[in-house]
Write a protein that binds this DNA or RNA. Structure first.
Lengths: 133, 133
DNA sequence: ATCGTTGCAAACTCTTTGCAGGATT
DNA sequence: AATCCTGCAAAGAGTTTGCAACGAT
């Protein structure tokens, strides 16, 4: 059976990193998480496996303004994201409350949209007073 | 008079690039535009001047998912952006029609948002049938 | 004549690729 | 055993910085 994908400790650890996180992760975050199971794991392997998991349809890219691309489990319903200004973590939000009617100049045709909300996650919200942002 | 900012052909050309474009520009686009007035202009100079114009408050960054940061004239009212899937250009949209109430999990505090619309600009919309996208 | 500014090249960061050794089937 | 996968190091893209020469004041 040629061309078959093999299961390696590295790939398992990378998959588990996404499953356990439950939120979009950037390559460096995946590395940090997966290195807890597989010491010596290289960043190149993380990038290669992310790419493989994208092609396989197991991951989708989450691109946020000004941030390195993150990735999350694929197959979810249309949704958007939230970034905490405290810890920087990105969370998934359910649903979509955009009314697609901006003041759109004539001749423009809309095919899609992206929404990102910013603020503080529960954890940072409660500890905000103690921090110097 | 120490610490005074000087006017150079390069800086003028870079400022003019933004004024003439009327839409957010990425460093490479600024370089291309400004080189029409100043041949030999280097990309480092573009980056340095963009940074200076940011600190001066003349420019604001426009960060879009998955794209190099663009910059536009500062001081405009709250607005969002549109990227054309045909030519890739980014346009400014007036107004903001987001209802800030997504299905937000408990404990999250919203302080801001970003909206990007995608589609086709008038030019690309009319020539779409001729292209193989 | 100062000293801010420029262009070039080197440094950096993030991501991708080449290659020899190692691991899975 | 075959060959996919990994780690390391080198190579690319985009951005920043060091430095000597240039040029605005």
């Amino acid at each position: 059976m040629p061309g078959m994908i093999r299961n390696t400790r590295q790939r398992d650890a990378i998959r588990r990193a996404f499953e356990d996180a439950g939120r979009p992760l950037a390559p460096e975050q995946v590395l940090a998480a997966a290195q807890r199971s597989v010491r010596g794991l290289g960043i190149a392997t993380v990038y290669r496996n992310i790419r493989a998991l994208l092609e396989e349809g197991w991951l989708t890219p989450v691109e946020l303004p000004g941030l390195p691309t993150r990735y999350e489990l694929a197959g979810k319903a249309h949704h958007h994201h939230f970034q905490c200004r405290g810890c920087g973590h990105v969370f998934e939000l359910e649903g979509c409350a955009i009314t697609t009617h901006h003041a759109l100049p004539r001749g423009f045709e809309i095919t899609g949209h992206e929404v990102v909300l910013y603020g503080f996650c529960p954890e940072c919200s409660s500890s905000k007073s103690k921090q110097a942002l």
